[in-house]
């Protein structure tokens, strides 16, 4: 399989992530969508690194992305839990005290 196939998979996953973020009402889906986007980027990095044969940059970036994703997921979930405790809901549309 050539590079194009990997990039295509990555682009599709990116699109799915965006759709998940925009369309699903539960905040956990939004987090999942974000993970999808990060993973899509990771596929790209590794694929480009593999086909480009230029040092370790892409793979290293992928590892750091995984680390970032973990960190972000931890913080985001903590915030979501906090919101759930206060609003008794995980729908971001119901947390709309701040507007206009």
């Amino acid at each position: 399989m050539g590079l194009g196939a990997y990039v295509a998979v990555s682009a599709a996953l990116f699109g799915l992530g965006i759709v998940a973020i925009i369309t699903r009402r539960n905040v956990l889906y939004i987090l999942m969508g974000i993970e999808m986007i990060l993973n899509a980027a990771n596929i790209n990095f590794v694929a480009f690194n593999r086909f480009g044969d230029n040092g370790l940059d892409g793979r290293m970036f992928a590892i750091f992305t995984i680390i970032l994703a973990a960190a972000e997921a931890a913080v985001a979930l903590a915030i979501v839990l906090n919101v759930f405790h206060l609003f008794s809901s995980v729908k971001p549309s119901e947390a709309d005290l701040l507007r206009e």
Binding site: I21, A76, I79, V83, L97
Partner: peptide
């Protein structure tokens, strides 16, 4: 709490997009 939620969602999206 709401501010944090909005920030983390928007920030996560932006970070992902930028990473891509």
């Amino acid at each position: 709490a709401e501010a944090a939620l909005k920030y983390v969602i928007f920030g996560g999206l932006s970070a992902g997009v930028m990473l891509y």
